[in-house]
Design a protein around this nucleic acid. Structure first.
Length: 574
DNA sequence: GCCGTTTTCGGCCCGACTGTTTTCAGTCG
């Protein structure tokens, strides 16, 4: 989609305008960029269908913005943007990634020292050319070097499942301190975002110094960026930062609300406060200089005339309007999940690291599940020694036998498979065999670079197979590693609806469907299932990340079929 | 540049920190 490309240009323009000291316009360009980024339709299609008039109906898009969009769609460029670039030919993205470097400093360093990229910046800082410059100084130069150092050790944004276990371990240790009265994780981790920049802890304490001393000496701390009266900041060996802030108890709620974000959500809540003659900050809600709220998050939202809004919804994506109208979804929860149907066993790799069906079942029972579904790969998947049809039937017989044992434990093992969708849309297992299984998952595992039309025909054919129940990782994206296939998601939803195919929310590093797609699937009434795609018993624990993604997609219990009892679940399958 | 059940003109979120120009600009979250 062109949406993201144009959004990037608008963000760029905003930055250039800021450099020139233009007031307010940058804000308008940023708003337009956010609006495009989160738009569900392709802006090119909108333009084709409704012309400029349709463009101007988009939130934050007026006459000038629609000029730019039209120009980009016709020529692939925006002249207004090109002019700016000519005036400041630097790697702005990289340079502003250095902590403390903003657009204006970038401009000064380019004009005075010819700094165009990170290498130039490092050279200039090491030669002490920066400190003498007007508006800079010794500390700024030192901070730039430190910022460059951090960039080298930083992994950037980290996948949530790579960081949350470590964050929870730290949380537990802090919780155990008697000096800690209240504590919570904040930031994007609390909102359940798929990638996390850094981990934020918020604390109420009767002895902040002691808590912070403990924090900076935690195992895994590689470097202490800073430690003050109310804030400590450290860099971890894992390549990410953790921040700890101590706040007064009377501001705990407003601070938690503030540090949880998102920034866009905060801006909107603060505007609501202004409309009510109030002022919202991390310190509380104020009427004049008098604090009227702030001890808990519930209080803060209440003072704004809103019900509590779950962190996963706080992205300024319509949650405030929904809250005002009393139409917030009742989000699905981890405890609603009754089983996991995308699990691989050692049947498909006897000598590998996978666990036996019995071990997986035991783990599922420990998680409080009522069922587990074994879905090994099939014929085509040589990498994972996919089961052939004979083996699949043997596995089926074995599971039937096992189930007799589990019956008195009120637990059931379901038998499925993760079959492969071939190039032509056919399935790599015969219908006669598929028919014997409790359910059938299909997925694309090769030839994922097909043209959109071909790819959609392939997917449609697979979903129309009368035995196919679940479409695994439907868009093919892998967070931070691979973009989605060339697909038409609206079309996919229509086919899923028509064929009653259930779309998977895969909890592994795929996180596919992603949040915005989940929301669209829900809107179309397409059912989904949250699976882990576990290849080891520990990975059954990934479920929480799929649930977080589902919640970010506004999904309710009724949208997710593995919240059903086993009898009801089986009725969902063809 | 965009927007509007208090506005078609006058607003655009808020506070902390840093360095330095000692009153405020730049940056961050």
């Amino acid at each position: 989609m062109k949406n993201q490309e144009i959004a990037k240009i608008f963000n760029d323009i905003a930055r250039f305008l800021r450099i020139d000291g233009v007031a307010f316009k940058p804000y308008a360009y940023e708003r337009a960029a956010i609006s495009l980024e989160t738009l569900k339709d392709d802006v090119a299609q909108i333009y084709i269908a409704g012309g400029r008039k349709a463009l101007e109906e988009i939130e934050g898009i007026g006459k000038a913005m629609s000029d730019h969009i039209e120009e980009y769609l016709k020529t692939g460029k925006v002249q207004f943007h090109e002019e700016f670039k000519k005036g400041l030919p630097v790697d702005m993205d990289a340079l502003t990634r250095v902590e403390g470097m903003g657009p204006k400093k970038v401009k000064v360093l380019y004009q005075k020292l010819g700094v165009k990229n990170l290498k130039d910046l490092e050279r200039a800082a090491k030669k002490h050319q920066i400190a003498p410059l007007f508006g800079f100084g010794e500390t700024t130069e030192k901070n730039i070097l430190q910022g460059l150092e951090f960039l080298k050790t930083s992994k950037g944004r980290v996948l949530i499942s790579d960081i949350k276990p470590a964050a929870m371990a730290v949380l537990k240790k802090l919780q155990a301190l008697k000096e800690v009265e209240k504590i919570s994780i904040a930031g994007s981790l609390r909102r359940g975002k798929e990638t996390i920049g850094d981990v934020d802890f918020l604390v109420v304490s009767n002895n902040p110094k002691k808590v912070m001393d403990f924090f900076v000496k935690l195992p895994g701390v590689e470097k202490i960026w800073g430690q003050g009266g109310t804030k400590a900041s450290v860099h971890m060996k894992g390549g990410y930062d953790m921040d700890l802030r101590v706040v007064p108890e009377k501001s705990y709620g407003s601070a938690l609300q503030y540090f949880t974000g998102s920034q866009a959500h905060n801006i909107t809540t603060r505007k609501i406060a202004i409309d009510k003659g109030l002022k919202l900050s991390e310190w509380g809600i104020f009427r004049g200089s008098k604090q009227i709220s702030g001890k808990t998050e519930e209080d803060v939202y209440k003072a704004l005339g809103l019900p509590y809004i779950a962190p996963e919804l706080r992205e300024d994506q319509g949650e405030i309007d929904a809250a005002l109208q009393g139409k917030l979804p009742k989000l699905v929860e981890l405890k609603d999940i009754k089983g996991d149907l995308h699990v691989h066993s050692n049947w498909s790799e006897p000598d590998g690291e996978k666990d036996s069906i019995e071990v997986l079942a035991k783990k599922a029972m420990e998680l409080g599940y009522e069922y587990i579904g074994i879905s090994d790969h099939t014929n085509d998947l040589n990498v994972e020694k996919g089961l052939n049809e004979k083996e699949l039937l043997q596995e089926n017989a074995y599971i039937k036998k096992l189930n007799k044992k589990y019956k008195k434990k009120n637990f059931r093992i379901l038998h499925g498979c993760e079959a492969n969708i071939r190039k032509d849309g056919s399935i790599d297992v015969k219908d006669a065999v598929l028919e014997k299984l409790d359910y059938v998952i299909v997925g694309i595992h090769s030839l994922n670079k097909m043209e959109k039309k071909e790819m959609m025909a392939r997917i449609e054919k697979a979903m129309r197979n009368p035995h196919v129940d679940i479409f695994a990782h439907p868009t093919g994206r892998i967070v931070g590693a691979r973009d989605e296939y060339q697909i038409d998601f609206d079309n996919m939803l229509q086919i899923a609806k028509e064929t009653r195919t259930i779309l998977e929310i895969n909890s592994s590093s795929r996180l596919d469907l992603r949040d915005l797609y989940i929301r669209r699937a829900k809107a179309e009434g397409v059912k989904m299932i949250i699976n882990t795609d576990a290849h080891k018993k520990e990975q059954l624990g990934f479920m929480e990340y799929g649930v977080a993604q589902a919640r970010r997609g506004w999904a309710e219990k009724s949208d997710i079929i593995n919240t059903l009892s086993v009898e009801e679940l089986l009725k969902q399958f063809k």
